[in-house]
């Protein structure tokens, strides 16, 4: 039995000690249904979909990564020659490590920058004031805009003779090529992605018990100690989860770099999804691109797994450890 269930049972037992005989009977019945006769077959439709939508394509990708599938063998793709790990060897020659480095560093910087912005915005819109609804709505604009629109608008603004250069007085500066393009990608990603952290932080703030605020007020705590010692600890779990999801979203973001920079992209922003896309759909090397995708998946999974084991996310105070 999980600790969560134990905790719940103990609490219930304490509350209902007088009614113990009835509760015990009910518990025994409940436990029987939930554990021994769980209708697991009800999972079949979902399980079937999982197999079809996730496992089969994954297995196919693994198979394709071991074959020499390209434009010449595409028509009889099942008979594409098996070449073992050659694609994996070649993918490291084709700039995969560089792309992984760009992707991971870009994602981490973007996440690190969005967290303080998101939390600050959540704190600002926590207490009631006139116009709070409007501010909350405005904060969500970057999040609800499609990535394509965001990238198109920024691309227009960042032209050498665009509005950004005229405001900064740096006519002719290139934002979409060369080394600066890396920082452009991060900047636009931050602009588009911070409301996600904001939403998660706001949700966590809303779940802080009213009593906590009252207790702080009774103890005469000023706003800063209250924020750092009382409120922020409540946010830890949800915000860590948000960080994890946001980082994965950044790493997997294809639309933004594709629309901002086009293909072929400058080397400085040749992120993993772009590399896989160009190899697949412009170079038509499906085997090679599948190998790249598999390597990327493994490389992301390792730290993700370690991280998940280490932090043991507490999403909700009562949610227990998982």
């Amino acid at each position: 039995m999980t600790t969560e269930l134990l905790d719940q049972r103990n609490r219930r037992n304490r509350r209902n000690r007088r009614k113990e005989p009835r509760v015990k009977r009910a518990e025994r019945k409940n436990r029987g249904v939930t554990e021994r006769q769980r209708p697991l077959w009800l999972l079949t439709p979902g399980g079937l979909l999982m197999v079809l939508v996730i496992l089969v394509p994954l297995a196919l990708a693994l198979w394709i990564s071991l074959t020499d599938l390209d434009q010449y063998t595409l028509r009889r793709w099942i008979q594409a020659p098996f070449i073992g790990l050659d694609n994996y060897v070649e993918s490291f020659d084709a700039g995969l490590l560089h792309s992984i480095w760009i992707s991971v560093s870009f994602a981490l910087i973007a996440t690190a920058a969005t967290v303080p912005i998101g939390i600050a915005a959540a704190v600002v819109t926590q207490n009631k004031y006139r116009g709070r609804g409007l501010v909350r709505a405005v904060f969500l604009i970057p999040y609800v805009l499609p990535s394509f629109v965001v990238a198109t608008v920024w691309r227009t603004m960042l032209q050498p003779d665009g509005i950004v250069n005229s405001v900064l007085g740096s006519e002719g500066s290139l934002w979409l090529s060369g080394s600066r393009s890396y920082w452009t990608l991060i900047l636009v990603e931050i602009w588009a992605a911070w409301p996600f952290i904001y939403l998660m932080a706001l949700a966590a703030l809303q779940s802080v018990d009213h009593e906590v605020h009252e207790a702080s007020a009774v103890d005469g705590v000023t706003w800063w100690p209250k924020l750092t010692h009382v409120i922020l600890p409540y946010l830890r779990g949800p915000v860590l989860l948000a960080c994890l999801l946001a980082t994965l979203n950044h790493i997997n973001n294809f639309t933004l770099p594709f629309v901002l920079f086009g293909a072929p992209a400058p080397d400085n922003v040749n992120v993993m999804p772009m590399l896989v896309y160009v190899t697949s759909f412009q170079g038509l090397r499906f085997g090679l691109s599948a190998a790249m995708a598999v390597v990327s998946l493994i490389i992301i999974l390792i730290p993700l797994f370690v991280y998940l084991r280490a932090v043991r996310l507490d999403v909700h105070e009562e949610g227990g450890r998982k």
């Binding site: 002719g172 500066s173 290139l174 090529s177 080394s179 600066r180 072929p264 400058p266 080397d267």
Partner: peptide, 9 residues
């Protein structure tokens, strides 16, 4: 051409 743009600028 794409990789030469910064030098070109």
């Amino acid at each position: 051409a794409v990789q030469s743009l910064p030098d070109l600028a």
